[in-house]
């Protein structure tokens, strides 16, 4: 299991080189900074150093147990990220694709609502609104109960 919480960009291709050796399926997801309003220049991500690493590792460990993954990686960035940049990625490897897809969805659902990151929009005039957590994201967790 590879967990990285970092400000730097990451290279998904390099991450996947040799990832999941022996698996039958590898699934990856990348989240990018999106501009919904047409006025956003960047996102600023704040996090809770110490708790972030623990929370993400715990989420990864639960996914590994549940789907018998052969490998798993989570990279999540913080700091100021421009529109179009990758914020984070997850990769899962398993014997069959259903397990790899499900585990990736599980990881994404929990990272959204249980990893201590907070996003804020940065416009031309500087810092704007904090991104508000969506009820739908919280509700999404219940499907894994």
């Amino acid at each position: 299991m590879l967990i990285r919480i970092q400000p730097e960009p990451f290279d998904l291709g390099a991450l996947l080189n040799g990832f999941g050796a022996g698996a039958g399926a590898v699934v990856t997801f990348s989240g990018l900074v999106r501009d919904d309003t047409g006025t956003m220049q960047a996102l600023e991500l704040e996090h809770y150093p110490g708790m972030t690493e623990k929370a993400v590792a715990a989420i990864g460990a639960r996914a590994s147990d549940r789907w018998n993954l052969t490998d798993l990686a989570v990279i999540h960035r913080y700091g100021r990220l421009s529109v179009g940049e990758a914020i984070m990625c997850v990769a899962t490897a398993a014997r069959h694709r259903a397990e790899a897809f499900e585990a990736a969805e599980y990881l994404m659902d929990y990272l959204k609502s249980r990893a201590p990151f907070w996003k804020r929009e940065i416009g031309a005039d500087g810092p704007g609104a904090w991104v508000v957590a969506k009820d739908a994201d919280e509700d999404a967790l219940s499907r894994w109960d």
Binding site: M51, M108, L111, K112, S113, A115, F117, W118, A133
Partner: peptide
């Protein structure tokens, strides 16, 4: 101590408490 808890959580032996809005990771 860096684990999510509810407001009735007891503080005995706790060294660090953090308050924050609902998280927006991913």
């Amino acid at each position: 101590d860096q684990v999510l808890v509810d407001f009735d959580h007891e503080l005995e032996h706790v060294r660090e408490v953090a308050f924050f809005p609902p998280m927006t990771g991913g």
